[in-house]
């Protein structure tokens, strides 16, 4: 009784504020919470004409199929391995670039370099996909043009799955090096300059200063950034994988991640949607557990950076 009363008084008092929230509340109910309810599809044999409620229940059959087919292990492994590579290599390159930018002196040349580093962030993965095709395609790609010019034999990149791990990680680094280094550069700029001045008086050289001042003070930022990314370790960069690899099934063992698998299963018309829904639920649920535990961990390290 008491609760409803206080809600009513609040409604009366702040009628306008509630009205202003309506678009956002409706939006998230329709496009986020309604689909959350839709995860019951994962436990059904979904048929389009029968709809979500008319389709027959199948219990955990969709999950069983996914795990027994061996797909679950391959997709989970690929997704996690790629994300670990993105996190580790991305961090190393971005921190390195940020340190170089913070220590080098030439203002104009630095600005020019920073502009070209940030440029890839602004283009779509579709365009990156076209770049990759222009460089690696067999007949007239730039790579094979170069190799032939040196008298070497051309490489069939699109028929060679093992190269793709490096291409994908490489282009991930390429696209995000400028964007990612901005965060670290901002953190370095926040370091008290007196620390460097007193190190200068003690006769420390630049490498010692980086090792004993910059890196230790960046540690918290680095750890937090890594933990935040680990929180999304089961989420795939769908845009990137789909545009770079597409539907080239020759490469799937090395390049298929959960998101691309679910998408293809959805896109193959006429198939049961229960199975991809089950895979999506598996990804969401495990991801949720990972994020919540990581958040508890971050709270222990530094409560200021906790997500919630």
């Amino acid at each position: 009784m008491h609760r409803t009363n206080s809600l009513l008084t609040e409604l009366k008092k702040n009628k306008m504020l509630f009205l202003m929230l309506i678009p956002a509340v409706l939006y998230f109910i329709i496009f986020s919470y309604l689909p959350m309810g839709g995860i019951i599809v994962a436990f059904k044999y979904f048929e389009f004409d029968k709809g979500i409620f008319g389709s027959p229940w199948v219990g955990f059959k969709n999950f069983a199929f996914f795990f027994q087919s061996g797909q679950a292990w391959l997709l989970t492994k690929n997704t996690i391995l790629y994300n670990l590579a993105f996190i580790a290599a991305g961090m190393a390159v971005q921190v390195g670039v940020a340190i170089l930018f913070s220590e080098l002196k030439g203002r104009h040349i630095k600005k020019m370099m920073q502009s070209s580093l940030l440029l890839p962030y602004f283009i779509s993965w579709v365009v990156v996909g076209s770049f990759v095709f222009g460089i690696f395609n067999y007949e007239f790609g730039s790579l094979n043009t170069l190799l032939k010019g040196w008298g070497m034999s051309p490489v069939d990149v699109y028929g060679n799955p093992s190269i793709w791990f490096f291409i994908i990680v490489g282009f991930y680094l390429w696209k995000l090096v400028g964007y990612g280094s901005i965060v670290y550069l901002a953190a370095i700029m926040g370091i008290n300059p007196e620390l460097y001045e007193s190190a200068d008086l003690d006769g420390a050289n630049i490498f010692q200063k980086i090792r004993h001042i910059t890196l230790p003070l960046l540690k918290t930022t680095i750890i937090i950034m890594i933990l935040l990314q680990v929180g999304g370790i089961l989420r795939g960069n769908f845009d990137m994988f789909y545009q770079l690899v597409g539907n080239n099934s020759l490469l799937f063992n090395q390049t298929d991640v959960i998101d691309t698998f679910v998408f293809r299963a959805l896109n193959q018309q006429g198939l049961d949607l229960g199975m991809p829904a089950a895979v999506g639920l598996y990804q969401s649920a495990v991801g949720f557990i990972i994020i919540v535990s990581l958040n508890a961990l971050i709270k222990k390290i530094n409560p200021d950076y906790a997500l919630f």
């Binding site: 329709i30 309604l34 599809v41 979500i52 991801g287 949720f288």
Partner: peptide, 26 residues
């Protein structure tokens, strides 16, 4: 009064989602 409750209502959607298939069906 309910600003924290609503904030969490929005924020929760970044932690958990129904996945691509239910969203597509909606």
């Amino acid at each position: 009064k309910y600003r924290n409750k609503f904030s969490f209502f929005f924020f929760f959607t970044t932690l958990f989602s129904g996945g691509l298939v239910p969203w597509y069906l909606v």
